[in-house]
Amino acid sequence: MEPFVFFGGKGGVGKTTVSCAYARKCADAGVDTLVVSTDPAHSVSDVFDQQFGDSPEPVEGIDGLHALEIDPDEEVTAHLDDIRNRLSDQVSASMVNEINKQLEMAHQTPGAYESALFDRFVEVMRGSDPYDRVVFDTAPTGSTLRLLGLPEFLEDWVDRLMYKRRQSIDLFEKAAIGNNEPRRVMDGDPVLERLQERKEFFEFAGGALREDAAFFLVLNPDQLSVNETARAVDDMNAEGLGVSGLIANKLTPAPDDDENGRGARYLRDRIETETDRLDQVRASLDPPLLAEIETRTEEIRGDLLADVAAELDVDVDPETPSFV
């Protein structure tokens, strides 16, 4: 199994439960594991009944398991402050105000939050050395797909910006005839350097996602969830990120055979529907259905997590990263 494992799916299908259970399964097998929540509505803290922050903390009671919840707001502020500091070092006081306006505008756009989330998420992958496995509990399908598609998109964009910058510097150099000093110089241009750094960052993210990551989709045995999963599988394929497997969660338990009350009849009907939906999944979707987890009567925490972990037929052996 790849070092980075992602669990995605529609809202409320149990991504957090499944990713925590899988993380626990890895940790129990002696694999040093970090579970990371990228969903702004964090619930990893709730599963382990312990508050996690933006840096990895050991999970109490489980050896070899750490957890962290990415906080994009903190990252946006840190990013803004960092640029502000460099701004006051480099830029004359009269221009600082002017440029500050631009700076604040860039940090208030809706995209800023997404970018900060992406930055932190790539930072976590970059700093994953102490762990053999990093499990990502992602946000619901739509936003995660956007997040995973970002590296390629942003790389293109930065490429175009660098091309434009090079063109204008080239002309400035050509315009400086005789002993004239060119207004901009290609060698050591700080703008190109910055853009290059960013380009490498996006390249790393894209490479890590393509080479060293496995994606699993969690679904519930109902039509909406099955349809959404089918779309997600297609979208992921289009991004070049294949889905390794599907996990069905919240299956209805069967009643005993001798029961015939209203409750038992309800359960049998429900099971019939669910069996049909799961047959659809097996027949029409490419990725294999790796686990069928029954619904529990209470929230999955503590010992129940170990039970669910046992039902997850997903490989845990760590693999040496090929890209990172």
Binding site: H79, I83, D89, M95, A106, T109, G111, L154, L195, R198
Partner: peptide, 25 residues
Amino acid sequence: ACFPDAFGIPSPVSYYTAEILPYIE
């Protein structure tokens, strides 16, 4: 292309291009 927000056009990269602001006085 770096700062279309200045004209009210939202940009997916302005968060990143803001990083070059200190160098383009």
